[in-house]
């Protein structure tokens, strides 16, 4: 029995296609860049300051944890920089410096490193950070209040707050085209919908993220919002409005697709994304929060291990 062959490996030379984990993170950052740059154009140097500080702080927290935990330095893999960048994209341009330092600490240390580092985090690190910040300093996510002194040539009210409190009439000044082009207030890198869609499509085509998750997430948002809209068109916004506002697009393409906190099989990916989309609109329409994406992400991340139990039948069985 001991001589039974169980695993056969061919001899060298082996071939490696040259891709490394850092390439994946760099490509995701590259894909997120158009939306971030649009944020810089709208909000100016303050937004640049938030993004620069967030990326650098995330890298420094990672380095500090590597030293304290006596682990190999992992700053070079680009994952900490990516977490910092996504965190900045979710924050308003007037975020105080201490919030950036605290938020990146939560994202990198509590969201990722204490679980064992890259590939071991059960939740999307930027979503963990934003959720904790949201519950601790809620006024920081009231974009109407945070961006009081900006005048950008479009309605300066947060569309989701206006919709939830005053109904569909209050958001009639927003055109869908304008929303897609980022003519709405919100997080630095989460308002320019076209940029996020282009970035997401690029990542899907290159194979860095799975289309099943993003598409089912957006389909979940669309269908649920459509049903709500049919039930009461005066109170509930239309499906495209929900798709192009708040954190929907950044959530669908950049947060829900985090590799270690999302499923790997086809059916679970569809269920995971669809559940996220449905939950987002349910929280927005009947929950107490104006944008449910962050809490939705944490819930679907939590469900992820259960969904991954749905496996394809093994070959030969």
């Amino acid at each position: 029995m001991l001589s039974q062959k169980k695993f056969i490996v061919s001899h060298a030379p082996f071939w490696h296609d040259g891709s490394r984990i850092c390439e994946r993170n760099h490509q995701i950052m590259l894909a997120a860049l158009p939306a971030l740059i649009a944020g810089f154009c709208y909000y100016g140097p303050k937004a640049i300051g938030v993004a620069a500080l967030a990326v650098s702080c995330a890298m420094l927290w990672e380095l500090l944890f590597n030293w304290v935990a006596k682990r190999p330095e992992s700053v070079g893999d680009g994952n900490a920089a990516l977490i910092g960048m996504l965190f900045a994209m979710l924050m308003p341009a007037t975020t105080p410096w201490w919030a950036v330092v605290t938020g990146t600490f939560i994202a990198v240390i509590i969201g990722k490193q204490i679980y064992g580092g890259i590939g071991a985090n059960p939740f999307s690190p930027p979503a963990v950070a934003v959720a904790i910040m949201m519950l601790s300093w809620d006024r920081m996510f009231d974009f109407d209040e945070m961006l009081l002194n900006y005048e950008l040539g479009f309605p300066m009210i947060y569309p989701l707050t206006a919709l939830k409190n005053f109904g569909v009439d209050a958001v009639s000044d927003f055109s869908l085209c304008g929303l897609l082009m980022g003519r709405q207030i919100g997080g630095i890198g989460s308002t320019f919908g076209l940029g996020l869609i282009i970035g997401g499509a690029y990542l899907i085509i290159r194979g860095f993220i799975r289309w099943e998750i993003s598409v089912s997430f957006l389909a979940g948002v669309f269908i649920t919002a459509l049903l709500f809209n049919f039930s009461d068109p005066v109170k509930y916004g239309g499906p495209l409005f929900h798709l192009f506002t708040g954190y929907t697009l950044i959530g669908a393409f950049f947060l829900a697709t985090d590799d270690s906190s999302s499923p790997v099989n086809f059916i679970p990916m569809l269920l995971y994304g669809a559940l996220g989309g449905v939950m987002t609109v349910v929280i927005r329409n009947i929950g107490v929060y104006v944008d449910g994406v962050i809490f939705t992400l944490l819930i679907i991340n939590l469900v992820n291990p259960l969904l991954d139990k749905i496996r394809p039948k093994a070959l030969g069985k």
Partner: peptide, 24 residues
């Protein structure tokens, strides 16, 4: 390179926060 990038971005962040303070 990542260490240099982190250092440069940290400086940029400090400069942006310092030079463009949130004076209403």
């Amino acid at each position: 390179l990542p260490y240099y990038v982190a250092g440069v971005l940290l400086l940029l962040g400090i400069v942006c926060y310092g030079a463009f303070s949130a004076e209403p």
